[in-house]
């Protein structure tokens, strides 16, 4: 065991460095006037000023967030209903749900985006400017993850509570709303969060189905790397840094709350043992 005592932390540290070096170096240079990293530089907030004052960038960020929220809400409703419906269906129907639900999960996003585009735009002739293909397409890649997140919670639930609600006079619809949904809420919430992050990270579905004049962060960044506008390019470094800090803050928050939950559990256990 002695050999591992320094090898293990070293390996972990090196991998963390590899993962974070690009992001942190870019974050450093986002606070300078450099046009590419490695130059000698002066401190400057120009990138952040450009990021927050250029209407084109603001509109793109707002559009991406609205889209992600809209898609996540739709995916959460559909995925949750699907998980509940399939859980209470016959085994054959359930198997069909699970298999079809798995298709977008394992499929390459390029194929999903392309196939949705052909169906809606080429076969049905729906105009991309309506946003319908974009929202429907991103929902295809998000809703299955909500389903996968909610379904196990139904299995963990004590089904006799639902029966008890019926015995006490609740209609099945009321029992589902007041008894089942609160029980599976953690699965619904984490499914929703997953849907938001998947939509924010999506490039392929968006590029095949989005209106020509609309950009998400992904499609915008890809176009910007092809273009030669240095000002926009370095403003995106600022965007990358802002997103990194937001994600970091969320992670620290989650870690804290997990730790305090653990602590509470341990304390509760001790109290019960005492």
């Amino acid at each position: 065991m002695k050999k591992n005592s320094f090898v293990a932390p070293l390996v972990i540290l090196i991998v963390l460095l590899l993962i974070y070096a690009p992001i942190l170096i870019l974050a450093f240079y986002s606070f300078t006037d450099a046009a590419s990293i490695g130059e000698s530089v002066h401190f400057s907030l120009d990138n952040y000023i450009t990021l927050f004052t250029t209407p084109e960038l603001a509109e793109m960020i707002r559009g991406t967030l609205f889209l992600a929220l809209g898609v996540a809400v739709l995916s959460t409703i559909l995925g949750t209903l699907g998980a509940m419906g399939s859980f209470y269906s016959r085994p054959g129907t359930l198997a069909a749900y699970r298999i079809i639900n798995q298709i977008p999960v394992i499929n390459a996003d390029v194929v999903t985006g392309f196939s949705v585009c052909i169906l809606l735009v080429v076969v049905f002739g729906i105009n991309k400017d309506t946003f319908f293909p974009l929202v429907a397409g991103q929902t295809v890649i998000c809703a299955p993850f909500v389903y996968l997140s909610v379904y196990p919670k139904l299995g963990q639930m004590d089904s006799s509570i639902y029966e008890a609600a019926l015995d006490l006079g609740a209609s099945p619809a009321v029992a589902v709303r007041k008894v089942v949904i609160p029980q599976i809420m953690p699965g619904i919430v984490s499914g929703f969060v997953m849907a938001v992050t998947l939509s924010l990270d999506d490039y392929f579905v968006a590029t095949y189905t989005k209106p020509a004049a609309f950009d998400t962060i992904s499609t915008y960044v890809v176009n910007a790397t092809r273009g030669s506008q240095t000002q926009i390019k370095t403003a995106l470094w600022a965007l990358s840094t802002v997103i990194f800090l937001i994600v970091l803050a969320i992670c620290i928050g989650m870690n804290r709350s997990n730790a305090s939950k653990e602590n509470r559990k341990v304390r509760k256990k001790r109290r019960m043992e005492a």
Binding site: I19, A21, P22, I23, I25, L26, Y29, S36, I37, T197, L200, D201, Y203, I217, S218, V221, V222, T225, L236, W237, L239, S240, I243, F244, V247, I250
Partner: peptide, 16 residues
Amino acid sequence: PMWINFTLRITALKEL
């Protein structure tokens, strides 16, 4: 990093 948009991560990698 999974939660940071991959195009931004690749931009960072490209610069480096």
